[in-house]
Design a binder for these strands. Structure first.
Lengths: 198, 198
DNA sequence: CCGATTCTGTACCGATCCATCCAAAACCTG
DNA sequence: CAGGTTTTGGATGGATCGGTACAGAATCGG
């Protein structure tokens, strides 16, 4: 029929995602994307409509994989809720430690994009809001489960507790980007749980 | 001697700061800076060495004013520590609600810059680290005072509690940038205090 | 009111921005 | 192996990027 592609679209998307993650949307040039993906400009623009479209799809991919990972941990109803939440924190801290570049982590593409684009781009903002809603739902469920198990004794509204945890996770990412080390991050997560078990 | 300036340098710096705050470093063009300050390119480059230098000074100004405001609240030893901390949260939430543009706040220039530049620019990173150290010190002091007063019963290390509060404040900003409303932000701050009083 | 000095507006610089065009290359079907 | 179709690389597009050059305007000391 026709000449086939010599590259894998998902691999290209992954490479693009990492560049956007490290440099932000404005901070990434189309040349950067060519270098990172190994593709020519033509191949990129033939596959993705624009830099914006490529970013949008990279962000969607990131959110899907990240939130799915978190869902797998938080929805593992075979384990106590408190243990699931601790595991989530441990994974997040581990991620922050492994995406380090010269003393500072890259943080989280979702958080980074919220900072850079949420106020300027309604389309991106809606994507972020959907992802946040999903994570809030996961967190609310694990909080409710922990309460049923008697582990989380806080009388606060589970919705608010979920928002609290979500905010704290974002703050954890910012702290890591600011240079906080593993011990500091772990201490933060320990204290964060105190609010649930008080 | 010579022709005097027709503009106030501090006012120009303020205008530049707001543009960087709203659009980030990469997202702000020199033309944007001319428009916002009302200055011509010559005046800007005659007063500031470069876009980078202008940003650096705008950031320094932001950090100085913001942290000074927070210090004034946290170091007001005439009031109970818990009250001071609540007041800090109230001011932060109020700020986030007033810098809104179309449902999303602009967040905090310090946090935004941490996301955009900390991993790439050692000079900016050091500025941010100094500011963070100063705020951590303020928070540690208020935590220690609250403990002496018997209000904060958490047995955790005051250093860690300060880091926890700092992370939570950043998360509060991110939540606001993501579209969280006043009620949600206030609930988060209430729960955050639970970790200190457990 | 003149000379020295500084500020300011405009034009301009090379580099880079995102995106497109087009011809050559590569593949599948018949 | 020929025709049709898609991909690919390289050249190229106008626009904008950060920054500079330069001439004229504005002010002060004398």
């Amino acid at each position: 029929m026709a000449r086939p592609r010599t590259f894998d679209e998902d691999r290209a998307l992954d490479a693009a995602m990492r560049v956007f993650w490290a440099n932000g949307y404005e901070g990434t040039s189309t040349q950067n994307l060519c270098d990172a993906t190994g593709l020519g400009r033509s191949s990129i623009y033939n596959t993705f409509a624009s830099k914006y479209d490529l970013f949008s799809r990279a962000l969607a991919r990131y959110m899907e994989t990240m939130t799915a990972r978190q869902a797998a941990i938080l929805e593992d109803t075979g384990r106590p809720a408190a243990e699931r939440l601790r595991e989530l924190f441990a994974v997040i801290v581990a991620d922050e430690m492994t995406t380090r570049q010269g003393g500072h982590s890259l943080g989280c593409l979702t958080v980074n994009t919220t900072v850079e684009l949420a106020a300027h781009d309604p389309g991106i903002a809606r994507m972020l809001e959907r992802d946040t809603a999903r994570r809030l739902s996961l967190l609310r469920e694990v909080v409710a489960a922990g309460r049923r198990e008697g582990a989380f004794t806080s009388p606060r509204d589970p919705d608010d507790l979920a928002r609290y945890l979500n905010a704290l996770i974002a703050g954890l990412r910012i702290s890591a980007q600011g240079g906080a080390g593993r011990a500091a991050l772990e201490a933060i997560t320990e204290i964060a749980l105190d609010a649930l078990t008080r």
